[in-house]
Design a binder for these strands. Structure first.
Lengths: 213, 213
DNA sequence: AGGTGTGAACACTTTCACAGCA
DNA sequence: TGCTGTGAAAGTGTTCACACCT
């Protein structure tokens, strides 16, 4: 069963789960691949293929049970447990993340925050005290951190990552506009806003060109 | 020349540009595809293929001129002009974005901010006054907005988008955890933090399983 | 000599179309 | 009957390998 699952499949699974939760809240009990596809902006065949990589969750002729499929997806995505996050960087992005209640609801708990700014160290965010960045490695161990969230400036990002990796962190979510280098054993995801804006810029420029041409 | 360029290529172009800017700052004048690839965490062939989709920018045997290639990439990505952004949502995420100085440096200027909260409307962010969300459509027209940035809760996101689309917005950057529906003529990019964390969760769960298995 | 530019081979992802089961 | 599950086909993206130019 240890097949390679593509990144696009995983993202779609996450989207399906969100949709199922909404359908469930609206009182719907079953759903067809066709409907799921329409909401997720994909195709029915894609939905069925994605799910079939992990098992047979539907009933032929009858579709999928909304609540059961949600349970399966949570299991597949590893959301049946809580994940412990350390946030590096108590700036604007860090603050926005810390206040983002969706995270905790979904099982991602920020259990430690570090920063280099002496004015911030020692102050409280809700019931957490901001710790000095020099304690990152020790905290990662003592707090049994699963993921590091990088919300520091680009130049400090690699240093922060190296420390966390030494302390055994398994996953990294990077908001700094820098390409980080980590061992293969560590999973890395990047969120790069400038890159997304540049992709929009590219698409729009291109459109205009072909209109004119 | 109106070939279809893949999203992954565009993201890499954006990464190459960032790398070239750093190399330039460090005083490097030429670079080989091999080096660029190593920093961007891809392959030399990929770098050359990506660039070759738009022209021949290097010299055989000699590599690429750092500054010239940067100019070409800016042109390709449509960064030779400024883009005008309207920010919908003056919450935490909106504030983090507004303060994110990289945006302006790179030609993305937030020229209007709207919110529904009466306590926020009329207050100033730097030299911008927060406007009522009901003015979104009019503002989009009068301010000649290119992109809408969606930083409102998931339930209000589609409504905001519909208004902006009616007013002729061309691109949308969505931070709300919702699948938005827009006409083909409008370019849409999503930034979904929960989805990224769930992808990490999936990868890590999977690893553990195969270690145990 | 040495690195780019690129067709052709390969690998991966999505779509099609239909057999199979409720 | 009607929708799922899935091999096989089509479509896309990446890597290879070498001709070509400086």
């Amino acid at each position: 069963m240890a097949r390679k699952i593509s990144d696009s499949t995983v993202r779609r699974l996450s989207a399906y789960l969100r949709i199922l939760e909404n359908l469930d809240r609206d009182g719907e009990t079953t759903v067809f691949s066709e409907r799921l596809a329409q909401i997720a902006a994909t195709t029915a065949a894609q939905v069925r293929k994605d799910l079939s990589l992990f098992g047979s969750f539907g009933k032929r002729g009858l579709g999928y049970s909304v609540s059961q499929l949600a349970v399966e997806l949570r299991e597949i995505l590893g959301l049946h447990r809580r994940w412990r996050l350390l946030l590096a960087g108590a700036g604007r992005i860090g603050a926005a993340l810390f206040e983002y209640s969706n995270l905790l609801q979904r099982g991602f708990e920020i259990v430690a925050v570090v920063d280099t700014d002496p004015a911030k160290i020692g102050t409280n965010w809700r019931d957490l005290t901001i710790q000095p960045a020099s304690d990152l490695e020790a905290l990662t161990r003592s707090e049994k951190i699963d993921f590091l969230v990088v919300a520091v400036p680009a130049d400090s990002a690699q240093g922060v990552v190296d420390q966390a990796v030494r302390a055994g962190v398994q996953g990294i979510l990077n908001f700094a506009p820098a390409r980080l280098h980590v061992p293969d054993a560590v999973e890395l995801k990047n969120v790069n806003i400038v890159m997304e804006l540049e992709a929009l810029s590219f698409a729009l420029s291109r459109r205009k060109e072909s209109e004119e041409g």
